[in-house]
Design a protein around this nucleic acid. Structure first.
Length: 882
DNA sequence: CGATCCCGCCACATT
DNA sequence: AATGTGGCGGGATCG
């Protein structure tokens, strides 16, 4: 717009013409030059009116790159045409001339003209806000860069932010897929939920001030902005999946920062966030540490992000005046409420869900999830089975790659949350953090062992049965790998501590920063095998994090998969609902697996569970407790007692390392074992994470035990931070009835009292109350709705607990915790035997129900890293042995 | 002079 | 090694 004005208005501005540009242009079109002189005089008017057109022209002209002079011309003409539908060709010609002229005039593209915000607007103008689901628009970075006349670097800035909001997703190198705003709401909702967990308190803390402030803002009226719901969200629905992060590099990246930034707005009461506060919050270290330069850099990045968000009409610049004076700030002007979701009751049957294929496709992707980077793939996966064809091309290389992104995102989220928690904790005394050193309980737990070891165990433990689901496997692998390798420095500790499993007990410890919770039956299997391999790599930076809500995707997938049955209940509605839910529920833990076949399993009646939310995933197995039938495998006997006993016996934290074996055995032996894996997201911090199953005997766990028991938590997770502080999570079991419980708010949460001593840093502690649990369980869509198996081994209690966590237990709130329940098929090669659909996998996320698959993703991510693409593929392909 | 933030070097990741 | 990504911060502009 500015440009536009200028062109006309400013004619006079003799802006220094930029010789350079001119030269370039001329160079480009020497011939043309001759043409016209029309210019100046004309300039005021001609066709160029379309602001954009002018801009484009200018830009193209000015653009340093101008690689393809001619090309550009061509390119840009079309564009203009398109924009200006009317202008006759003749005009166009003129335009060209004019353009040159104009250039002279305005040329010097003032900085504003080259601003990222403007560039972003131009970028956005090229694509429909709500593209038809059917059409997939692929974006070529090179092409766009040349068209817009900017270096590719700038496009990355835009795309990264857009990707964080799922407006686009990377399909392949240089290729992005445009999704539009269909899923924006869901994405925002997810972010809001995640934000609540992470930053809720923080923001409150910082922002109370805001209220006072006055802000002035300027101008822009809101454009319509986004809201919207999705129509066909299905398509992309990835929001959950989130793409964000890339794993690559540090995970920090603009993507994650962008999501965090958005979260702050969504969490803020005033919807106004000042740059400095945002920068402080976003800087990991506590504010104190932050050095000025770092702060400054952060702010710079925030400006970049803010420009894009502004272009999207999500925020606008304002100024708040505080005591000291006025500070730059941004106000959220986008949608605030995200009603969309409806929970659908889908009865539990995920299977039945009739999700659109696309969605499913999305789901499918999970399977693989291999490399971090695969984002590209994600798109493909996105579409699901039907990946965008166009987009895929490159992707094809890794067609399946599922969306690690999600993982990443989740991870990132997790981390964020962790960071936030820390801060909060610091601020808030109420959270007590225990220093490992001081309180050693945690320390005790960790057992030295191999990562592999752990891994194996986990998988087994975690996924009991799975058979064949490739996806599952993938997950497992991923997980294991992650767990296995704590890439982070912290990890080193882990090495020391290494992840340990308690022998008898159902809990696992991971060094990695990230947290995972897994619940599943213990099936052992081959997982180990697979794991190890994957595990090797293991570097994961804890950093990555953004946890995201892959859940939705997963859910979808699960649903889709599961529900082969088409019509199911409500076709449309169902579909919609699903979509909605998915979107909404992103977090849900859906299991990635593809259930398709599972019908039988699914069929399980059990479903008694209440279906409720998409979360089902969680429910999955857990829920199943209710339905023993699930037990198909092991029967879901009431392990509880047995297990408990065993645990109690075994529990010794002492023998961690051996534990793994035990575990595995146990798993094998015992059908279920509730196991939870908790991984803390925090980046470097955490050294270990622990999960305890509350059910077990409290006594067993020394530390936890004391507390926990009292709490009667079903499970406790303690991540040890490298630091002193540990976050502890407890989910109190709900003693009773899960089912009834709706998601409700985290009622239980309050109950907890953990005191962790606060120590050092902030270790977040979470306690989950049981209460929450129930609700979601039933549905567990992704897996199998009914999930017979899921329950697997878990004792009801566990299940409950799990459920609770997932739910939204308040507990979780503090941190992002993710629980996963996976079913795992045996490791790859192994048996496909019962391939059942993933039925059991249950995936949890504690934290707000975000459903972030974070953990999940991480896993994948890890795997991916570890395994070469090839490996990945293999994995993906499913366990097939070769 | 502080607020913005363009620009592009250069490291790291992927091909 | 080439190329894709994208962190990062100097320093130019804006207001």
């Amino acid at each position: 717009e500015n440009i536009f004005d200028r062109s006309r208005m400013a004619p006079k501005t003799p802006i220094k013409n930029e010789p350079v540009d001119l030269s370039k242009q001329k160079g480009c079109t020497p011939e043309r030059n001759p043409i016209t002189p029309v210019k100046l005089t004309d300039r005021p008017q001609p066709d160029p009116w379309t602001p954009t057109a002018n801009l484009k022209i200018l830009v193209s002209a000015a653009s340093p790159d101008m690689r393809d002079r001619e090309k550009k011309k061509e390119l840009f003409r079309p564009i203009e045409n398109s924009e200006q539908s009317d202008t006759p060709d003749s005009l166009q010609y003129d335009m060209v001339d004019d353009s040159t002229v104009d250039e002279f005039e305005k040329q010097r593209p003032s900085r504003k003209q080259k601003s990222l915000g403007l560039l972003c607007q131009k970028f956005l103008a090229r694509y429909p806000s709500y593209p038809l689901s059917t059409e997939k628009t692929t974006i070529s970075l090179d092409e766009v860069a040349s068209i817009l006349g900017v270096e590719r670097r700038r496009i990355y800035d835009i795309v990264n932010v857009l990707e964080s909001l799922h407006l686009v997703s990377r399909v392949a190198k240089n290729q992005y897929c445009w999704h539009g705003r269909h899923n924006l709401r869901q994405t925002l909702k997810t972010l809001q939920e995640a934000g609540e967990l992470q930053y809720g308190e923080l923001m409150t803390f910082f922002q109370h001030k805001e209220q006072d402030l006055e802000y002035k803002c300027g101008e822009r009226k809101k454009e319509t902005i986004p809201d919207t719901q999705d129509k066909s969200l299905v398509d992309f629905s990835e929001p959950d999946c989130t793409s964000a992060s890339a794993n690559s590099r540090k995970d920090k990246s603009l993507r994650i920062m962008s999501q965090k930034f958005v979260m702050l707005f969504l969490v803020s009461k005033t919807k106004i966030v000042t740059l400095d506060i945002a920068a402080k919050i976003l800087i990991e270290e506590t504010q104190d540490t932050v050095d000025h330069s770092k702060f400054k850099t952060k702010v710079r990045r925030l400006y970049d992000i803010a420009n894009v968000l502004t272009s999207l009409g999500l925020i606008k610049k304002v100024h708040v005046t505080e005591e000291r004076g006025r500070k730059p700030a941004f106000k959220w002007i986008g949608p605030v409420e995200f009603p969309v979701k409806t929970n659908e009751p889908r009865g539990n049957n995920p299977t039945s869900d009739p999700l659109p294929q696309t969605q499913r496709g999305v789901c499918a992707p999970y399977q693989i999830c291999a490399t971090r980077k695969q984002r590209f793939t994600r798109h493909a996966s996105f579409n699901g089975a039907q990946p965008c064809e166009g987009t895929r091309r490159k992707v094809s290389s890794e067609p399946n790659s599922p969306r690690q992104e999600r993982q990443d995102e989740y991870c990132s989220k997790m981390t964020d949350l962790a960071a936030v928690c820390r801060q909060k904790i610091e601020e808030d005394t109420r959270w007590v953090v225990r220093n490992p050193s001081t309180t050693s309980p945690l320390s005790l737990l960790p057992v030295p062992g191999d990562s592999d070891f752990c891994v194996n165990t986990l998988p087994q433990a975690v996924f009991p049965m799975v058979q064949a689901d490739a996806p599952n496997l993938a997950l497992l692998n991923g997980v294991s790998s992650q767990t296995l390798h704590p890439s982070t420095p912290a990890t080193s500790k882990t090495e020391n501590g290494k992840p340990t499993l308690l022998p008898s007990q159902p809990f696992l410890c991971f060094p990695s920063s990230s947290l995972f919770m897994l619940c599943g039956g213990p099936q052992e299997n081959n997982l180990r095998e697979t794991l190890p391999t994957t595990g090797e790599v293991g570097n994961r930076s804890a950093e990555a994090q953004a946890a995201v809500p892959p859940a939705a995707c997963q859910k979808r997938s699960s649903h889709k998969c599961t529900s082969p049955s088409p019509p199911v209940d409500d076709e449309e509605p169902a579909a919609k609902k699903q979509a909605m839910e998915q979107s909404d529920v992103p977090l849900s833990l859906v299991v990635p697996k593809k259930p398709s076949e599972s019908p039988k399993a699914e069929s399980i009646p059990g479903s008694g569970c209440t279906p409720d939310e998409p979360l089902e995933a969680f429910h999955l197995d857990l829920t199943s407790p209710a339905a023993p039938e699930a037990a198909n495998k092991e029967s879901t006997k009431p392990l509880d007692s047995q297990e408990q006993e065993k645990w109690s016996q075994n529990k010794d934290p002492n023998e961690p390392s051996p534990g793994e074996e035990h575990i595995s055995k146990e798993n094998a032996n015992q059908p279920f074992r509730p196991q939870y894996l908790y991984v803390q997201p925090t980046a470097g911090l955490s050294s270990f994470n622990f999960l305890f199953s509350a059910n077990q005997t409290p006594g067993a766990i020394s530390l936890a035990a004391s507390q926990l028991p009292s709490l009667s938590l079903p499970c406790v997770v303690v991540p040890s931070a490298a630091l002193a502080s540990f976050p502890v999570v407890c989910s109190p079991t709900v003693t009773s009835p899960l089912s009834p419980i709706p998601d409700g708010p985290f009622s239980a949460a309050t109950s907890m009292n953990f005191s962790v001593s606060s120590l050092a840093s902030t270790a977040p502690v979470f306690i989950g109350t049981t209460a929450v649990v129930t609700p979601k369980i039933s549905p567990t869509p992704s897996v199998d709705p009914q999930q017979p198996h899921p329950p697997l081994h878990l004792s009801p209690v566990l299940a409950r607990s799990c459920g609770a966590l997932k739910l939204d237990s308040p507990v979780c709130m503090g941190h992002p915790v993710t629980l996963l329940k996976l079913q795992q098929p045996s490791s790859t090669p192994l048996t496909p035997k019962s391939i059942r659909p993933a039925r059991h996998e249950a995936f949890f996320k504690t934290p707000g129900s975000l459903g972030d698959p974070v953990a999940w993703k991480k896993n994948e991510g890890n795997q991916t890293r570890n395994a070469s693409s090839v490996q990945r593929r293999l994995e993906i392909s499913s366990t097939s042995p070769d």
